[in-house]
Design a binder for these strands. Structure first.
Length: 712
RNA sequence: GAGCCCGUGGCUCAGCGGUAGAGCGUUCGGUUCACAUCCGAAAGGUCGAUGGUUCAAAUCCAUCCGGGCUCACCA
């Protein structure tokens, strides 16, 4: 054996061997009970970041269960990541001096498809480098034909059940990216703004005004009421009176009362623009107001904005303020801080705009999802995360699932040109209207990516291999970062229960984020992103894996620590040298048998020396403890126990002791105990343990060896 | 505005009701042994602050301070 463990020589070789021997499929344990985890499908188009390396937790579970004899399935996939990917692709086009408008829908889709396919192996190979024992024979993509079909079916079912509807409503729209979003994709940023006080002349009463305060004067062109609080005595006598909206050529609106108006803010009177503000939209619904859209989808003022038509919102604001000043209708302006809805991707302001979109009615779905966790049908680790889950589901709004992009699953809905009738299908194309035989056109929009990934567990198991769904659904564990609990996990629960009548997974395990060494969130814009591959090169996959679970409680964020990585790398080397010691003794004492792989029971029968007996007992205890900790998803302590015991008890004390009294019997015990420790450590450090196991003459392959049991 | 998490030796973090723990770092000693060393030992903490509950609190409760995250329609 080499003097020093060299992970580079070992990892690739071993992974290939495992893959060639088909150890990653559940079929290695044909008779075991099913145990399944679906890998959260990474974006097919993007290289992995450090968060993905945390999926090592899933590999630990799968290897553990595989060794215990379960039919352990860990199913890999890739996500088309609709808007994310189209955004990246458009950036690329931009660099080439092009834009999405230079291509028709089909061309653009094809280009993105090729782009994604060419990048996809990068991500998949990184998963291999991490040592993940994923069943590649079952890998799926969210745009695979069979998956798409399932997504269509769910949509149709939701529609038929009245849980999907198409309506013209105010939605979050990014005029830069040209698409609408769900609530979750809107980020509220605190910004400095000007609060303008504007006078609206009261009709028929000369020189009388009502003053309102607003940060968005340009939207006044679409005002359809002024609202005050019914309790506000200041305005009681003005209720029902008309005012004329400045700059609109005398358009008249009414002063109404609504209890949502905050008397303390501004003047206590608020302008109501139902077509461009969520609050105002609500008020508009209640009071049956008109909707006058003055901002268009391109971010420019519409014709309804009269002479401001064609101006961008910002310009329009400036002009409106200027004109109001000239008309003596502008009061004071003050500086305030307020939160502005912005696009999570491009950071430009989100405009609430009125449009027809497909919505999923969430309340009934959310209720069942809440119930699933409250009743214990789904367990959450760590338990504190339940709060996040409930918080989201208890305050949920209907989900806008339409996106105005091409990269994704196109909505299978067709509209008749003639009679306007909509028909939703399970993917079949409708050319003729069933009612009037008019020509039908498919909706241009695609689904929100999360609508398809929200169906992933049942979709992927129905599509992977015949029998998989029956065998492996519900899956055992869903493990992912807590940051996508709402985006993804909660939606999987809702859609899973809806479509299959069963929870999609029995347990949710959530890990924390990996921050940079200074504790800051890694992000491209900050330039502090650490490429996991570099660390794999430097420290080896085993060390990186171990460092990620060691010393951090489940669900807590951690900062990348180079000293820790180094310590873990040293640990792999320590293991290697323990093996070298054992190996050298075998060679030097050729009469020593290579008999090993004895069970605890056999070792107990063999041992005479007190120290040997004690070590057997301690190893048995460790086995019990590590097993117990893994069962309760306490990877941190399982890892710490292994580390401490192997280094500071087994190596520092026991090996030092055996050194001075080595004989046939003690060698067999030493060797066997070490192999047991390798088994316990294997889920965490699969490469070095497998390599050593084989060098020391372990039977077969460690990855499929039997998990040690205390009393066997 | 509301909620959540974190604040433990120089650094990174475990512990979360029963005499303060680990890794890294530091200091001293030993060894070249299977070990890019490794082994042994030591120094170093009134567990953010203040009150309370308890026989007993880093651990439970309250308030406050500091750091982070999330949610929310403040015009």
């Amino acid at each position: 054996m080499d003097k020093v463990y060299n992970h580079k020589d070992v990892e690739e070789k071993i992974y290939k061997e495992w893959e060639e021997k088909d150890f990653f499929t559940p079929e290695v344990n044909p008779k075991g009970k099913p145990y399944s985890i679906i890998l959260p499908p990474p974006n097919a188009n993007a290289p992995l970041h450090f968060g993905h390396a945390m999926y090592v937790i899933e590999d630990i579970l799968i290897r553990f269960k595989r060794m215990q004899g379960f039919r352990a399935l860990w199913l890999p996939g890739a996500d088309h990541a609709g808007f994310e990917t189209q955004f990246v692709f458009e950036k690329k086009l931009q660099l080439e001096g092009k834009s999405r408008f230079d291509y028709d829908r089909e061309e653009l889709y094809k280009m993105i498809w090729d782009f994604v396919q060419s990048n996809r192996p990068v991500m998949e190979n990184q998963l291999r480098r991490l040592g993940f024992s994923l069943d590649w024979s079952r890998k799926k993509f969210t745009l695979d034909e069979d998956i798409v079909k399932i997504v269509y079916k769910t949509f149709k079912k939701l529609f038929d059940d009245g849980l999907v509807y198409r309506e013209k409503r105010l939605v979050n729209y990014c005029t830069y990216d040209g698409t609408s979003f769900s609530d979750l994709e809107v980020v509220y940023l605190e910004k400095e703004a000007k609060l303008y006080f504007i006078k609206y002349p009261i009709v028929g009463e000369k020189d009388k005004f009502i003053k309102v305060a607003t940060t968005r004067p340009e939207t006044m062109l679409g005002d359809t009421a002024i609202a005050v609080n019914p309790k506000d005595t200041r305005y009681k006598k003005l209720l029902g009176k008309k005012v004329s909206v400045p700059l609109t050529g005398g358009r008249e609106i009414e002063i109404i009362s609504d209890e949502t108006v905050d008397m303390e803010f501004g003047t206590g009177a608020v302008k109501v623009t139902p077509a461009h503000d969520f609050n105002d939209y609500e008020i508009g619904q209640k009071h049956n107001l008109d909707y006058i859209p003055v901002i268009g989808f391109g971010g420019k003022m519409t014709d309804a904005a009269l002479r401001f038509s064609g101006l961008y919102v910002k310009e329009a604001r400036r002009e409106v303020v200027k004109d109001l000043g000239e008309l003596q209708l502008l009061g004071k302006t003050t500086d305030i801080k307020h939160t502005v809805p912005t696009c999570y991707k491009c950071k430009n302001p989100i405009e609430p705009l009125l449009m027809y979109q497909w919505f999923v009615k969430m309340e009934p779905l959310a209720g069942r999802a809440i119930e699933a966790v409250k009743s214990g049908k789904i367990k959450v680790y760590p338990k504190t995360m339940e709060k996040l889950y409930f918080q989201f589901l208890e305050n949920i709004h209907d989900w806008n699932i339409s996106r105005q992009i091409v990269w994704g699953i196109r909505v299978p809905a067709f509209k008749c040109e003639k009679c306007g009738e909509w028909e939703v299908t399970s993917g079949e194309v409708r050319e003729k209207c069933g009612k009037c035989s008019g020509k039908m056109n498919q909706d241009e929009d695609v689904f929100d990516t999360w609508f398809s990934s929200g169906q992933w567990p049942f979709a992927v198991l129905r599509a992977s291999q015949p029998g998989d769904f029956k065998e492996f659904y519900p899956t055992t564990v869903m493990e992912t970062g807590y940051d996508i609990l709402r985006w993804w996990v909660a939606r999987m629960v809702m859609l899973g229960i809806y479509e299959t009548k069963k929870v999609p997974f029995e347990t949710i395990v959530l890990h924390g984020l990996v921050n940079d060494p200074l504790g800051k969130k890694m992000s491209k814009s900050k330039g502090n992103v650490v490429n996991p591959l570099e660390l794999l090169d430097t420290y080896g996959a085993d060390a990186v894996r171990f460092a990620l679970v060691y010393g951090t409680a489940l669900g807590n964020d951690q900062s990348l620590s180079y000293p820790k990585l180094q310590a873990m790398r040293n640990f792999t080397n320590k293991l290697w040298n323990m093996a070298r010691f054992i190996d050298m003794n075998r060679i030097q004492n050729s009469k020593l048998k290579t008999q090993n792989n004895l069970t605890m029971q056999q070792l107990n029968n063999l041992a005479i020396n007190e120290n040997d007996k004690e070590m057997i007992e301690k190893t048995a205890e460790l086995t019990k403890e590590v097993t117990r900790l893994l069962e309760k998803y306490d990877f941190n302590h399982a890892a710490q126990n292994l580390y401490d015991f192997i280094w500071h008890e087994f190596a520092d004390v026991y090996i030092e002791d055996v050194k001075n009294r080595i004989d046939e019997q003690s060698f067999i015990i030493l060797n066997s105990l070490f192999l047991i420790l390798l088994k316990l450590l294997h889920p965490f450090m699969p490469f070095v343990t497998e390599e050593i196991y084989k060098l020391l003459g372990g039977e077969g392959d460690l990855i499929v060896s039997k998990w040690p049991v205390k009393n066997a």
